[in-house]
Computed example of a mutant assay.
Amino acid sequence: MQFVGYARSMLAPDQRTEYAALFTGHCAEIRDFQVNDEITAIHWWDLIEALPGHLQPMDAYLAELTR
Score class of each variant (00 low, 15 high):
Met1Arg: 05
Val4Ile: 10
Val4His: 10
Val4Thr: 10
Val4Ser: 01
Ala7Ile: 01
Ala7Asp: 10
Arg8Glu: 15
Ser9Val: 06
Met10Ala: 03
Leu11Trp: 02
Leu11Arg: 13
Leu11Cys: 01
Ala12Gly: 05
Ala12Lys: 11
Ala12Arg: 03
Asp14Gln: 14
Glu18Gln: 10
Glu18Pro: 11
Tyr19Asp: 02
Ala20Asp: 05
Ala20Tyr: 01
Ala20Ser: 13
Ala21Glu: 11
Ala21His: 02
Ala21Phe: 08
Ala21Cys: 08
Leu22Arg: 00
Leu22Glu: 03
Gly25Trp: 02
His26Ala: 11
His26Tyr: 01
His26Glu: 12
His26Val: 13
Cys27Gln: 10
Cys27Ala: 13
Cys27Trp: 15
Ala28Gln: 15
Ala28Trp: 03
Ala28Asp: 15
Ile30His: 07
Asp32Trp: 12
Asp32Ile: 08
Asp32Arg: 06
Phe33Pro: 05
Gln34Asp: 14
Gln34Lys: 07
Gln34Asn: 11
Asn36Ala: 04
Glu38Asp: 11
Glu38Ser: 09
Ile39Gln: 09
Thr40Cys: 07
Ile42Gln: 12
Trp44Cys: 12
Trp44Arg: 06
Asp46Leu: 07
Glu49Cys: 08
Ala50Ile: 04
Gly53Asn: 01
His54Met: 14
His54Asn: 12
Leu55Asn: 00
Leu55Val: 11
Gln56Asn: 06
Pro57Leu: 08
Met58Phe: 07
Met58Trp: 09
Asp59Leu: 11
Leu62Cys: 12
Leu62Phe: 07
Glu64Val: 15
Glu64His: 01
Glu64Thr: 13
Leu65Thr: 14
Thr66Leu: 05
Arg67Phe: 03
